[in-house]
Design a binder for these strands. Structure first.
Lengths: 148, 148
DNA sequence: CATGAATAGTTCACATTGTCAAATGTTCAG
DNA sequence: CTGAACATTTGACAATGTGAACTATTCATG
Protein backbone atom coordinates (compact mmCIF):
# COMPACT_ATOMS: atom_id res chain seq x y z
CA UNK A 1 0.00 0.00 0.00
CA UNK A 2 2.97 2.29 0.58
CA UNK A 3 4.08 4.46 -2.28
CA UNK A 4 7.77 3.98 -2.74
CA UNK A 5 8.16 6.12 -5.81
CA UNK A 6 11.28 7.89 -6.99
CA UNK A 7 11.57 11.41 -5.55
CA UNK A 8 8.63 13.52 -6.60
CA UNK A 9 9.15 16.14 -9.28
CA UNK A 10 8.15 19.44 -7.63
CA UNK A 11 6.70 20.75 -10.87
CA UNK A 12 4.50 17.67 -11.13
CA UNK A 13 3.41 18.24 -7.56
CA UNK A 14 2.49 21.84 -8.27
CA UNK A 15 0.68 20.93 -11.46
CA UNK A 16 -1.24 18.39 -9.43
CA UNK A 17 -2.34 21.08 -6.99
CA UNK A 18 -3.31 23.44 -9.79
CA UNK A 19 -5.29 20.69 -11.42
CA UNK A 20 -7.05 20.01 -8.14
CA UNK A 21 -8.19 23.62 -8.04
CA UNK A 22 -9.34 23.56 -11.63
CA UNK A 23 -11.14 20.30 -11.06
CA UNK A 24 -12.98 21.90 -8.17
CA UNK A 25 -14.05 24.86 -10.27
CA UNK A 26 -15.02 22.75 -13.22
CA UNK A 27 -16.99 20.38 -11.05
CA UNK A 28 -18.93 23.18 -9.43
CA UNK A 29 -19.75 24.75 -12.76
CA UNK A 30 -20.84 21.42 -14.19
CA UNK A 31 -23.16 20.70 -11.29
CA UNK A 32 -24.68 24.15 -11.50
CA UNK A 33 -25.26 23.90 -15.24
CA UNK A 34 -26.88 20.52 -14.72
CA UNK A 35 -29.01 21.77 -11.84
CA UNK A 36 -30.22 24.65 -14.01
CA UNK A 37 -31.81 21.95 -16.17
CA UNK A 38 -33.04 19.92 -13.19
CA UNK A 39 -30.41 17.28 -13.81
CA UNK A 40 -27.87 15.92 -11.38
CA UNK A 41 -24.24 15.71 -12.37
CA UNK A 42 -24.44 11.95 -12.75
CA UNK A 43 -27.51 12.19 -14.96
CA UNK A 44 -25.84 14.84 -17.11
CA UNK A 45 -22.77 12.63 -17.53
CA UNK A 46 -24.87 9.71 -18.71
CA UNK A 47 -26.74 11.93 -21.17
CA UNK A 48 -23.42 13.28 -22.43
CA UNK A 49 -22.21 9.74 -23.08
CA UNK A 50 -25.38 8.92 -24.98
CA UNK A 51 -24.78 11.73 -27.44
CA UNK A 52 -22.46 9.24 -29.14
CA UNK A 53 -25.38 6.86 -29.67
CA UNK A 54 -27.29 4.12 -27.84
CA UNK A 55 -25.22 2.09 -25.46
CA UNK A 56 -25.53 -0.96 -23.17
CA UNK A 57 -25.77 -0.14 -19.48
CA UNK A 58 -22.65 -2.15 -18.81
CA UNK A 59 -20.72 0.11 -21.12
CA UNK A 60 -21.99 3.19 -19.33
CA UNK A 61 -20.91 1.72 -16.00
CA UNK A 62 -17.45 0.93 -17.34
CA UNK A 63 -16.95 4.37 -18.79
CA UNK A 64 -18.02 6.09 -15.59
CA UNK A 65 -16.10 3.57 -13.45
CA UNK A 66 -18.96 2.51 -11.26
CA UNK A 67 -21.04 -0.57 -10.56
CA UNK A 68 -23.69 -1.47 -13.11
CA UNK A 69 -26.32 -1.54 -10.38
CA UNK A 70 -25.71 2.15 -9.90
CA UNK A 71 -26.53 2.87 -13.52
CA UNK A 72 -29.88 1.14 -13.16
CA UNK A 73 -31.09 3.86 -10.79
CA UNK A 74 -29.71 6.76 -12.79
CA UNK A 75 -31.27 5.48 -16.00
CA UNK A 76 -34.54 4.82 -14.13
CA UNK A 77 -34.74 8.49 -13.20
CA UNK A 78 -33.77 9.70 -16.66
CA UNK A 79 -36.28 7.35 -18.23
CA UNK A 80 -39.12 8.42 -15.96
CA UNK A 81 -38.55 11.96 -17.14
CA UNK A 82 -38.46 11.07 -20.80
CA UNK A 83 -34.78 11.76 -21.41
CA UNK A 84 -33.79 8.22 -22.36
CA UNK A 85 -35.36 4.94 -23.44
CA UNK A 86 -34.35 1.37 -22.66
CA UNK A 87 -34.69 -1.30 -25.32
CA UNK A 88 -33.58 -4.90 -25.43
CA UNK A 89 -30.73 -5.45 -27.85
CA UNK A 90 -32.09 -7.80 -30.55
CA UNK A 91 -28.61 -9.31 -30.93
CA UNK A 92 -28.34 -10.27 -27.27
CA UNK A 93 -31.44 -10.05 -25.19
CA UNK A 94 -29.53 -9.82 -21.94
CA UNK A 95 -28.38 -6.38 -23.02
CA UNK A 96 -30.48 -3.25 -22.73
CA UNK A 97 -29.62 -0.45 -25.07
CA UNK A 98 -30.10 2.95 -23.54
CA UNK A 99 -30.76 5.75 -26.01
CA UNK A 100 -31.24 9.46 -25.47
CA UNK A 101 -34.60 10.85 -26.63
CA UNK A 102 -34.84 14.13 -28.51
CA UNK A 103 -35.44 15.91 -25.23
CA UNK A 104 -32.48 14.15 -23.67
CA UNK A 105 -30.11 15.04 -26.46
CA UNK A 106 -31.35 18.62 -26.53
CA UNK A 107 -30.78 19.04 -22.80
CA UNK A 108 -27.31 17.60 -23.06
CA UNK A 109 -26.24 19.72 -26.02
CA UNK A 110 -27.63 22.82 -24.39
CA UNK A 111 -25.81 22.05 -21.18
CA UNK A 112 -22.55 21.48 -22.98
CA UNK A 113 -22.81 24.77 -24.75
CA UNK A 114 -23.67 26.64 -21.59
CA UNK A 115 -20.45 25.29 -20.09
CA UNK A 116 -17.91 27.87 -20.99
CA UNK A 117 -15.90 26.08 -18.43
CA UNK A 118 -15.03 28.70 -16.10
CA UNK A 119 -15.33 31.28 -18.80
CA UNK A 120 -13.22 33.48 -16.57
CA UNK A 121 -10.29 31.11 -16.13
CA UNK A 122 -10.08 30.49 -19.84
CA UNK A 123 -10.63 34.11 -20.72
CA UNK A 124 -7.47 34.95 -18.80
CA UNK A 125 -5.49 33.32 -21.59
CA UNK A 126 -4.57 34.85 -24.92
CA UNK A 127 -5.78 32.94 -27.99
CA UNK A 128 -2.35 31.54 -28.69
CA UNK A 129 -2.03 30.43 -25.10
CA UNK A 130 -5.31 28.60 -25.39
CA UNK A 131 -3.85 26.77 -28.35
CA UNK A 132 -0.80 25.88 -26.31
CA UNK A 133 -2.99 24.62 -23.50
CA UNK A 134 -5.11 22.62 -25.90
CA UNK A 135 -2.03 20.92 -27.31
CA UNK A 136 -0.65 20.07 -23.91
CA UNK A 137 -3.95 18.62 -22.75
CA UNK A 138 -4.27 16.65 -25.95
CA UNK A 139 -0.86 15.14 -25.43
CA UNK A 140 -1.72 14.21 -21.86
CA UNK A 141 -4.91 12.50 -22.91
CA UNK A 142 -3.56 10.65 -25.90
CA UNK A 143 -3.48 7.28 -24.20
CA UNK A 144 -6.12 7.82 -21.55
CA UNK A 145 -9.68 6.60 -21.27
CA UNK A 146 -12.12 9.13 -22.65
CA UNK A 147 -14.92 10.08 -20.30
CA UNK A 148 -17.88 12.44 -20.03
CA UNK B 1 -32.72 30.47 -19.57
CA UNK B 2 -31.31 30.63 -23.09
CA UNK B 3 -27.64 31.30 -23.49
CA UNK B 4 -27.23 34.10 -25.94
CA UNK B 5 -23.48 34.41 -25.84
CA UNK B 6 -21.23 35.68 -28.58
CA UNK B 7 -20.21 32.89 -30.95
CA UNK B 8 -18.25 30.24 -29.08
CA UNK B 9 -14.52 30.03 -29.67
CA UNK B 10 -13.93 26.50 -31.00
CA UNK B 11 -10.61 26.26 -29.19
CA UNK B 12 -12.31 27.15 -25.92
CA UNK B 13 -14.90 24.50 -26.63
CA UNK B 14 -12.26 21.88 -27.28
CA UNK B 15 -10.30 22.87 -24.18
CA UNK B 16 -13.52 22.50 -22.24
CA UNK B 17 -13.95 18.96 -23.51
CA UNK B 18 -10.34 18.09 -22.76
CA UNK B 19 -10.73 19.50 -19.28
CA UNK B 20 -13.86 17.42 -18.78
CA UNK B 21 -11.85 14.29 -19.56
CA UNK B 22 -9.03 15.29 -17.26
CA UNK B 23 -11.47 16.14 -14.52
CA UNK B 24 -12.93 12.66 -14.84
CA UNK B 25 -9.52 11.03 -14.57
CA UNK B 26 -8.41 13.23 -11.70
CA UNK B 27 -11.62 12.64 -9.83
CA UNK B 28 -11.32 8.89 -10.15
CA UNK B 29 -7.74 8.90 -8.97
CA UNK B 30 -8.57 11.14 -6.02
CA UNK B 31 -11.42 8.91 -4.89
CA UNK B 32 -9.24 5.82 -5.16
CA UNK B 33 -6.39 7.39 -3.22
CA UNK B 34 -8.84 8.45 -0.53
CA UNK B 35 -10.49 5.03 -0.43
CA UNK B 36 -7.07 3.41 0.00
CA UNK B 37 -6.96 5.29 3.34
CA UNK B 38 -10.60 4.53 4.19
CA UNK B 39 -11.58 8.10 3.48
CA UNK B 40 -14.28 9.35 1.16
CA UNK B 41 -13.53 12.08 -1.33
CA UNK B 42 -15.43 14.64 0.71
CA UNK B 43 -13.60 13.72 3.89
CA UNK B 44 -10.26 13.94 2.10
CA UNK B 45 -11.16 17.40 0.78
CA UNK B 46 -11.96 18.65 4.26
CA UNK B 47 -8.72 17.24 5.65
CA UNK B 48 -6.82 18.88 2.79
CA UNK B 49 -8.36 22.24 3.68
CA UNK B 50 -7.39 21.81 7.30
CA UNK B 51 -3.73 21.45 6.39
CA UNK B 52 -3.78 25.24 6.28
CA UNK B 53 -4.82 25.37 9.93
CA UNK B 54 -7.96 25.22 12.10
CA UNK B 55 -11.04 26.66 10.50
CA UNK B 56 -14.69 27.43 11.35
CA UNK B 57 -17.18 25.01 9.82
CA UNK B 58 -18.83 27.84 7.98
CA UNK B 59 -15.57 28.55 6.19
CA UNK B 60 -15.25 24.93 5.15
CA UNK B 61 -18.77 24.99 3.75
CA UNK B 62 -18.09 28.16 1.79
CA UNK B 63 -14.87 26.87 0.34
CA UNK B 64 -16.46 23.61 -0.73
CA UNK B 65 -19.63 25.40 -1.91
CA UNK B 66 -22.09 23.40 0.09
CA UNK B 67 -24.55 23.88 2.92
CA UNK B 68 -23.11 24.10 6.44
CA UNK B 69 -25.42 21.31 7.56
CA UNK B 70 -23.56 19.02 5.20
CA UNK B 71 -20.24 19.77 6.86
CA UNK B 72 -21.65 18.77 10.24
CA UNK B 73 -21.96 15.17 9.11
CA UNK B 74 -18.60 15.00 7.39
CA UNK B 75 -16.81 16.45 10.41
CA UNK B 76 -18.78 14.09 12.69
CA UNK B 77 -17.37 11.12 10.83
CA UNK B 78 -13.84 12.51 10.74
CA UNK B 79 -14.02 13.33 14.44
CA UNK B 80 -15.28 9.89 15.42
CA UNK B 81 -12.22 8.43 13.75
CA UNK B 82 -9.81 10.80 15.42
CA UNK B 83 -8.82 12.76 12.32
CA UNK B 84 -10.12 16.13 13.49
CA UNK B 85 -11.21 17.90 16.66
CA UNK B 86 -13.93 20.48 17.22
CA UNK B 87 -13.36 23.31 19.69
CA UNK B 88 -15.37 26.39 20.48
CA UNK B 89 -13.67 29.55 19.33
CA UNK B 90 -12.89 31.58 22.47
CA UNK B 91 -13.40 34.79 20.48
CA UNK B 92 -16.93 33.88 19.39
CA UNK B 93 -18.53 30.97 21.08
CA UNK B 94 -20.97 30.42 18.24
CA UNK B 95 -18.05 29.30 16.13
CA UNK B 96 -16.51 25.85 16.24
CA UNK B 97 -12.95 25.59 15.09
CA UNK B 98 -12.18 22.34 13.36
CA UNK B 99 -8.54 21.25 13.50
CA UNK B 100 -6.81 18.26 11.99
CA UNK B 101 -5.13 15.94 14.47
CA UNK B 102 -1.70 14.49 13.85
CA UNK B 103 -3.30 11.42 12.32
CA UNK B 104 -5.53 13.60 10.16
CA UNK B 105 -2.69 15.70 8.85
CA UNK B 106 -0.57 12.63 8.23
CA UNK B 107 -3.31 10.93 6.22
CA UNK B 108 -3.86 14.04 4.18
CA UNK B 109 -0.20 14.64 3.40
CA UNK B 110 0.27 11.01 2.53
CA UNK B 111 -2.72 11.10 0.24
CA UNK B 112 -1.53 14.21 -1.47
CA UNK B 113 1.85 12.67 -2.15
CA UNK B 114 0.37 9.47 -3.45
CA UNK B 115 -1.55 11.54 -5.96
CA UNK B 116 0.77 11.71 -8.88
CA UNK B 117 -2.30 12.93 -10.60
CA UNK B 118 -2.69 10.64 -13.40
CA UNK B 119 0.98 9.89 -13.27
CA UNK B 120 0.60 8.62 -16.82
CA UNK B 121 -0.99 11.76 -18.28
CA UNK B 122 1.65 13.99 -16.77
CA UNK B 123 4.45 11.64 -17.65
CA UNK B 124 3.55 12.07 -21.28
CA UNK B 125 4.93 15.60 -21.08
CA UNK B 126 8.55 16.64 -21.26
CA UNK B 127 9.85 18.60 -18.24
CA UNK B 128 9.74 21.88 -20.12
CA UNK B 129 6.20 21.16 -21.21
CA UNK B 130 5.20 20.59 -17.62
CA UNK B 131 6.58 24.02 -16.85
CA UNK B 132 4.54 25.49 -19.68
CA UNK B 133 1.44 23.75 -18.39
CA UNK B 134 2.09 24.95 -14.87
CA UNK B 135 2.37 28.53 -16.05
CA UNK B 136 -0.83 28.36 -18.05
CA UNK B 137 -2.74 26.85 -15.17
CA UNK B 138 -1.34 29.44 -12.80
CA UNK B 139 -2.51 32.21 -15.07
CA UNK B 140 -5.96 30.71 -15.30
CA UNK B 141 -6.27 30.46 -11.55
CA UNK B 142 -4.89 33.85 -10.66
CA UNK B 143 -8.26 35.37 -9.84
CA UNK B 144 -10.19 32.25 -8.98
CA UNK B 145 -11.29 30.83 -5.67
CA UNK B 146 -8.79 28.35 -4.32
CA UNK B 147 -10.23 24.99 -3.39
CA UNK B 148 -9.10 21.56 -2.25
C1' DC C 1 -29.61 47.40 29.63
C1' DA C 2 -33.06 45.04 26.92
C1' DT C 3 -34.97 43.52 22.75
C1' DG C 4 -34.58 41.73 18.44
C1' DA C 5 -32.06 40.74 14.15
C1' DA C 6 -28.29 38.27 12.41
C1' DT C 7 -25.04 34.49 12.67
C1' DA C 8 -22.92 29.53 13.54
C1' DG C 9 -23.92 25.29 14.17
C1' DT C 10 -27.04 21.18 14.72
C1' DT C 11 -30.93 18.22 13.75
C1' DC C 12 -34.34 16.10 10.90
C1' DA C 13 -36.56 14.50 6.70
C1' DC C 14 -35.66 13.54 2.23
C1' DA C 15 -33.43 12.61 -2.63
C1' DT C 16 -29.38 10.89 -5.10
C1' DT C 17 -25.31 8.36 -5.68
C1' DG C 18 -22.51 4.68 -4.65
C1' DT C 19 -21.27 -0.22 -2.88
C1' DC C 20 -22.04 -5.15 -2.38
C1' DA C 21 -24.62 -9.52 -2.49
C1' DA C 22 -28.35 -12.11 -4.13
C1' DA C 23 -31.73 -12.79 -7.52
C1' DT C 24 -33.42 -13.39 -12.78
C1' DG C 25 -32.89 -14.15 -17.62
C1' DT C 26 -30.00 -14.99 -21.50
C1' DT C 27 -26.16 -16.86 -24.06
C1' DC C 28 -22.82 -20.12 -25.18
C1' DA C 29 -19.45 -24.06 -24.73
C1' DG C 30 -19.17 -28.90 -24.29
C1' DC D 1 -28.89 -30.58 -22.03
C1' DT D 2 -26.16 -28.71 -18.42
C1' DG D 3 -23.48 -25.46 -16.34
C1' DA D 4 -20.60 -21.44 -16.54
C1' DA D 5 -20.47 -16.73 -17.82
C1' DC D 6 -22.80 -12.56 -18.48
C1' DA D 7 -26.24 -8.23 -18.26
C1' DT D 8 -29.36 -6.34 -15.61
C1' DT D 9 -32.21 -5.77 -11.55
C1' DT D 10 -33.36 -5.71 -6.64
C1' DG D 11 -32.62 -4.74 -1.88
C1' DA D 12 -29.99 -3.25 2.17
C1' DC D 13 -26.95 -0.08 3.46
C1' DA D 14 -23.55 4.16 3.92
C1' DA D 15 -22.23 8.80 2.53
C1' DT D 16 -23.24 13.21 0.51
C1' DG D 17 -26.16 16.86 -0.49
C1' DT D 18 -30.38 20.10 0.20
C1' DG D 19 -33.76 22.73 2.87
C1' DA D 20 -36.33 24.01 7.00
C1' DA D 21 -36.71 24.36 11.87
C1' DC D 22 -34.27 24.82 16.18
C1' DT D 23 -30.56 26.45 19.78
C1' DA D 24 -27.14 29.37 21.28
C1' DT D 25 -24.51 33.35 20.82
C1' DT D 26 -23.37 37.98 19.27
C1' DC D 27 -24.27 42.62 18.27
C1' DA D 28 -26.77 46.91 17.10
C1' DT D 29 -29.88 50.16 18.58
C1' DG D 30 -33.24 52.28 21.07
Amino acid sequence: METQQPPIDPVTLEVTDLMASLVGIFHREYEEAAAARSLTGAQAKVLALLRRGPMPMRHIAQTLSCEPSNITGIVDRLESRGFVTREADPQDRRVKLVAATGAGTAASVELRESLHFAREPLAALAPEERLQLRDLLRRMLEGATPSA
